[in-house]
């Protein structure tokens, strides 16, 4: 089957066309990736069109869409989610959400257990942990890096995490005491690989709900402030 993969949950604007046949691993036909946190709206659909053209695949030949559902900074994340939802609706094909962290883990050749971290701004990271079988065993969560480090040394210690990947892996590797693996941004193959089970089974897609992990910053107003001098 032919699958369109999208992700905008990191500074990368990612679109790719992937073939998923039988039990074979996903095969990349074409991809377009630009790292620019301010260009998600601008570039995502042009990237879709360019990747399809290069792959020689028409939109009406697509069987499914896989869309990274974060966690990620909200505004950019929504661009990919709404693009996936609208394309799927217009083409009448299923759209499968998949955690962006799972997609990064899928594309990372790791050896023991893996931590994946992406930038959550506000000096925090989004993170998940994967065991040596590839399953997610913790996350996704959002925390300050030192909180993640403390959890790795404490409650997550039995899992034996030794490696880290993701866009901000390098800058926190020393704090975590982990070996950095080269995979940074989510790839089309990683996205499709992480969604391979529902795609192959033809399972009903999960709801297209972004993994925000934070409530909107909004405070209910208290008592009205006086404008006149008391």
């Amino acid at each position: 089957m032919l699958v369109l993969a999208l992700d905008t949950a990191t500074p990368a604007v990612t679109a790719g066309v992937v073939a998923l046949d039988g039990d074979a691993p996903p095969e990349l036909l074409a991809e377009r990736v630009t790292v620019d946190p301010r260009a998600h709206t601008e570039l995502l659909t042009p990237h879709v069109t360019a990747a399809l053209d290069e792959a020689g695949v028409r939109l009406d030949q697509l069987d499914a869409i896989v869309c990274g559902s974060g966690p990620g900074p909200f505004t950019g994340l929504r661009v990919g989610m709404v693009t996936g939802a609208a394309l799927g609706q217009a083409l009448g094909i299923p759209v499968h959400p998949v955690s962006t962290l799972d997609a990064i883990a899928y594309a990372t050749p790791f050896h023991t257990s893996l931590l994946v971290v992406t930038d959550a701004r506000r000096r925090e990271v989004y993170w998940s942990v994967y065991c040596d079988q590839g399953w997610r065993v913790a996350g996704p969560h959002v925390d300050k890096p030192d909180v993640v480090a403390a959890k790795l040394a404490d409650e997550l210690e039995p899992i034996g995490v030794t490696e880290v990947s993701g866009p901000v892996a390098q800058q926190h590797a020393e704090l975590f005491g982990l070996t950095v693996l080269p995979t940074t941004y989510p790839t089309p193959v990683g996205l499709v690989g992480a969604a391979a089970w529902p795609l192959r089974e033809g399972a009903e897609p999960e709801p297209l709900t972004p993994l925000y992990l934070r409530q909107p910053d909004a405070v209910e107003p208290g008592a009205r402030k006086r404008v006149s001098q008391a």
Binding site: R78, V79, A90
Partner: peptide, 15 residues
């Protein structure tokens, strides 16, 4: 605005 623009671009591309 970005949600509407991204959706419109997808509907336009698909149709």
């Amino acid at each position: 605005l970005m949600v509407g623009v991204a959706a419109a671009k997808a509907y336009s591309t698909a149709s």
